[in-house]
Design a protein around this nucleic acid. Structure first.
Length: 256
DNA sequence: AAAAAGGTCAACCGCCCCGTG
DNA sequence: CCACGGGGCGGTTGACCTTTT
């Protein structure tokens, strides 16, 4: 006891992260890394405590994170690992590349515990689709009107290819992005973006209507030929989105 | 159509571990 | 060896969303 809290609470933001805060954190870590979480928010100009920044990065913004529903194989792995490791979520996460301890913990408490209970009581197991609530079948909104940008990073920015998404798309949310084409990329604000705008066009970046996301993997089918890497495209898209003020900045994407 | 119930998951809290001086 | 501080971890909460009544 007697230990000071990790940060003074006064004057620091709490709760959900804003797109601007996300962007600041991403930019800072890309430039400087995160050797000192405690000092990071001050250096980056964020009104957050270091722990909050760390958590946000590790559980959400880190591009290595694999988004989307857990596959049956992953779920089975979690169950098996939990049998041997118990509630050591970080140890379990270490065996599942791209998955975070928090995510695994959530899946365990929301799905797998129940599944195991059913298994034990009935002697059977449910399928992935069975265990999903109807609500879970429709993916979280990508960038829906009025939504926060948490969902942007969640579903539209991924360094993984499309394998992450094994869910059925919701037609309404799919229709949020019918117009990802040249026009979307045609108004860069900085010279750097101009370079990408001609390359990251609808021709190479396509909205994946099956997975309800921007499929960044198609941008770079042949590195060196088409120019930007997936990371570059993610940066470009994210910068553009944030600079434009989120969904408000893309009227053509609203009310589709 | 509205309210209630249930599910999901990002984020916080507080403790523990470990490196450093 | 000890104290301290930062990072990491697991438990928990609460807002939001979907489904059910």
């Amino acid at each position: 006891m007697g230990r000071a809290p990790c940060c003074e609470k006064m004057g620091l933001n709490r709760g959900p992260w804003t797109p601007e805060e996300d962007q600041i954190l991403i930019s800072y870590i890309r430039k400087h890394g995160h050797s000192n979480w405690r000092a990071l928010p001050k250096l980056a100009g964020l009104l957050r405590c270091g722990k909050s920044c760390r958590l946000r990065w590790i559980n959400y913004l880190n591009p290595d994170i694999k988004r989307g529903n857990f596959t049956r194989e992953e779920e089975d792995a979690i169950i098996n690992l939990h049998e041997s490791l118990g509630n050591r979520w970080s140890a379990i996460a270490a065996k599942l590349p791209g998955r975070t301890d928090n995510e695994i913990k959530n899946v365990w408490h929301t799905h797998l515990k129940k599944r195991l209970r059913n298994k034990n009581s009935e002697g059977g197991i449910s399928s992935v689709s069975e265990r999903q609530s109807p609500g879970a079948l429709s993916p979280q909104p990508s960038i829906s009107a009025g939504g926060d940008v948490s969902s942007v990073t969640e579903n539209t920015i991924s360094t993984e290819d499309t394998r992450s998404y094994d869910e059925t798309p919701s037609p309404s949310s799919v229709e949020q992005f019918p117009l990802i084409d040249e026009s979307l990329w045609s108004e860069p604000e900085a010279g750097e973006l101009t370079n990408y705008s001609s390359e990251v066009s609808g021709e190479y970046l396509q909205f994946d209507d099956q997975f309800d996301s921007l499929d960044f993997s198609v941008i770079d089918p042949a590195p060196g030929i088409y120019g930007p890497s997936i990371d570059d495209a993610m940066d470009f898209w994210y910068d553009l989105f944030v600079q434009a003020g989120g969904i408000e900045g893309f009227p053509e994407l609203q009310g589709q």
